[in-house]
Each structure stands twice: as structure tokens, then as C-alpha cells.
Design a protein around this nucleic acid. Structure first.
Length: 338
RNA sequence: GCACAGGUGGGUGAGUGGUUAAAGCCAACAGACUGUAAAUCUGUCCCUCUCAGGAGGUACGGAGGUUCGAAUCCUCCCCUGUGCA
């Protein structure tokens, strides 16, 4: 650790010599992130760190398109299939855990390298933009969510309308109110929550906390590989994959999960599961549920693309991650950085 | 063949003489996002021009007609659904 710090200060030593690399595989759903991440992991003896919010939940398998048991046995996976379906995860919690995992991998790498063994390359793979940003850039130093306060605020929104809630924020933090649309209730609530829950020596607004900046991930060089297939190809792939999920037992899985955990399990409200729930409630027939699931996935992919377009320094790959040519391109990009 | 119902912008679906380029919803496209994010929200969405406030053109199955004015009323034609033959 000491040595690493002194090395950092010497300008003639290339950064690559002192800071371990973390590869980030990002892209919309069904673009083949898992396949690409696995290909890179095999080539460089990597370990995969999941960055998909729903894939963190245990027992949600088919609808989340998790890697197979064989793939998990072959390549170490982290933050996958690890959270109780009734628990709540959050971007902050994810970032904390993911950073811990990255540090562990880096430490292990040092030990292994000194003993002349294989290297371990951390590969963050996932489509949850906020989680990725929380991991890489950090969050502002705000309070965690407070369920009681939220319940109260949500109730007030239902009673008096969203405008009223927005006016409260206007009074607490005009700048934040300006940035957040009145209709965006969850964000308005979070901002109010931050203002109210932060009563240090003096109360701070969310805007003030923002200005303190965020703690970005330190000690790693980051290589971002972005999957960007053609829109039509992606959408076709999404449709096909959703149909496959239905064929492979998504409905049975959802029924089982529903029986075991009840409707309040949050991931039951996510893509695919949500539509199957509608089917189980008799609101949709199977065909309509599938069509709705496909639609929801397409819409989600689009939102992911607008998020990732903003991501800095992405090495874009114009294709699907299952494509060997794309994998080769990705591997070549990693090779250059290593 | 007769009877009824209906044909509206990419889809669905309001509108039944002017304030309607035509509600709402969906799709599509673009965007936002700092602890529920696979969530939530915003904008654009007939064409052309614009000093960006607007200007012009085309549009509610087709062709005519009534009217100062028609998606809306009338006539004929075409098509679709349902019922009776």
C-alpha cells in the first residue's frame, strides 16, 4: 500500500504500472454484455462484478438473464444473486459493496502477481446507469432514505397533489426545485428528504450537499467498453429474448416467487415479472403479456442508451456482445490497456 | 341481396357545422436523472418556410353538393363488421 502511494507520485512511472485496471462493460439490455464480459474474463482471467440492479436479487433467474451456473462456476461473479428478494437495494449500498469487491480483487491480484501467478482483472458488467455512476463517480454525501418520511410525503402528494409537494421543495431548496419537475414525485420526495434529514449543525439543502462534490472511485484505471448495436437489431434481439424467457418458464418462476415472497417483493415489479404478474392476475392473456414485456424491454433499452451516451470515455463497439468479432475488438482494447 | 353499425393523423380512439392540424392514450424519436433507477419524469411528433412570435400548404375512405364556413349536413360510389336471407 505504502509502495503504491509513493509510486503514484513519480511522474516517470507510467500510470499503468501502479494502478490496476477495471474494465466496465455497459450497454442496453440484450446487447450481449454478459457474453462480452465472459469472453474478456476468460482471456484475462477476470472476475465479473455485476452492475444490474435486479440481477442482485436472489432467485430471480430467468427474467434477469443471469449467467448460467456453469458460467458462474467458470468465472467468479460478484454482487450477483446475493440479495434477499424482500430487501431493498440502493445505489449507495451497491456502490459501497462494489468498491469493496474491487479492492479485494486488486489486493488478490497483487499477491498473485508477486508469486508469479495469474492476474485477476475486475470486469464490471451491467446496465444500471445510476449504479454504475454511483460506483465510478460516487454519490453526493447525502443521507440514506427514510421510509417513514417518504410515506408521509407520498401521502401528502396523494392528498394535495404533486404541485403542493413541489412547493414544499421550493421553500426548502429553490435551486433543486428548479431542476426537478413537479411531476417527478420520487425525485421531489428524495430532495425534500435530503433537506429535512440533514440537520447537522445547521440544516443543509440538497444543492449545498451537491456542491461538496462526490467521491469518485480512486486507485483504478477505467476502461469503458460500450455495446451499441443497431437499433433494429437490438429490438429484434429483445423480442426474441423475451419470448425465450416465457418459453423457458418465466411464468412458473414468477408464480413460485410470488408464493414465496408475496407481491411486495420489489423485483416482481421489474421488467418481465411485472407483465407476468398481470397475466397471473388475469389482466392480460399470455400473448399480450409477452408483447407488453417486449415493449417494456425496448423502452428500457432506449432509456439506457440515452443515459450511456453521456458516459465519458466510452470505447464503443458497434454490435452485439455475442458476436466473436465484437469480442475480439473488446479484447484488443483491453490488451492495449493492460 | 336486405337491415343495422362503421370508415379520423404510425396505431388506438374522441370530436358530430366555426374557438379543430384535429382531445386522450400508445408507439416512435430526443432528453433529464447525484441512495426505489428494470424506477420516475420532460419535450417533439402532417409538410414547407421562419427575424422562432409566427406564416403558408395539405389532411378526417372517394367523388360531388349544401353553407360565409364541413371531419361534422345531403347524394352517389368504394370498403369493413354484425344481424337477416
Amino acid at each position: 500500500m505504502e509502495r503504491a502511494l509513493t509510486l503514484l507520485k513519480l511522474p516517470e512511472v507510467p500510470r499503468s504500472e501502479c494502478e490496476p485496471l477495471v474494465v466496465v462493460v455497459l450497454g442496453p439490455t440484450a446487447s450481449g454484455k454478459t457474453a462480452l464480459a465472459l469472453a474478456i474474463a476468460r482471456r484475462f482471467c477476470g472476475e465479473i462484478v455485476n452492475c444490474d440492479s435486479v440481477a442482485m436479487y436472489r432467485e430471480f433467474q430467468i427474467g434477469t438473464a443471469k449467467p448460467s451456473a456453469a458460467e458462474c462456476a467458470e468465472v467468479p461473479h460478484h454482487l450477483l444473486d446475493c440479495v434477499d428478494p424482500l430487501a431493498d437495494v440502493s445505489a449507495g449500498e451497491y456502490a459501497r459493496q462494489a468498491r469493496l469487491v474491487l479492492r479485494e480483487i486488486a489486493l488478490r491480484e497483487n499477491v498473485l502477481r508477486e508469486s508469479g501467478q495469474r492476474r485477476h482483472l475486475p470486469i464490471v458488467s451491467g446496465g444500471t446507469g445510476l449504479y454504475l455512476r454511483a460506483l465510478l463517480e460516487g454519490l453526493f454525501p447525502g443521507p440514506q432514505r427514510s421510509e417513514e418520511l417518504r410515506k408521509k410525503l407520498r401521502g401528502r402528494a396523494e392528498q394535495h397533489g404533486t404541485e403542493r409537494l413541489h412547493r414544499i421543495l421550493q421553500r426548502l431548496d429553490a435551486s433543486a426545485a428548479n431542476r426537478i419537475h413537479a411531476n417527478d414525485v420520487p425525485k421531489v420526495i428524495r430532495a425534500i428528504e435530503v433537506c429535512l434529514a440533514t440537520r447537522r449543525p445547521s440544516r443543509r439543502t440538497m444543492t449545498e450537499l451537491w456542491q461538496q462534490g462526490r467521491e469518485s472511485l480512486q486507485g483504478f484505471r477505467i476502461l469503458r467498453l460500450g455495446l451499441n448495436p443497431e437499433r433494429e437489431v437490438l429490438y429484434a434481439r429483445i423480442n426474441q429474448r423475451a419470448a425465450m424467457m416465457f418459453d423457458r418458464g418465466l411464468i412458473a418462476e414468477t408464480e413460485r416467487l410470488l408464493a414465496k415472497y408475496g407481491e411486495q417483493a420489489r423485483p416482481l415489479a421489474s421488467l418481465g415479472y411485472k407483465q407476468v404478474m398481470q397475466f397471473l392476475r388475469g389482466e392480460l392473456d399470455r400473448g399480450s403479456a409477452l408483447a407488453a414485456a417486449q415493449q417494456a424491454h425496448r423502452n428500457y433499452a432506449k432509456r439506457q442508451m440515452t443515459w450511456f451516451r453521456k458516459e465519458p470515455d466510452v470505447h464503443w463497439l458497434a454490435g452485439l456482445g455475442d458476436d466473436p468479432a465484437i469480442q475480439a475488438e473488446g479484447i484488443a482494447a483491453v490488451e492495449q490497456e493492460i
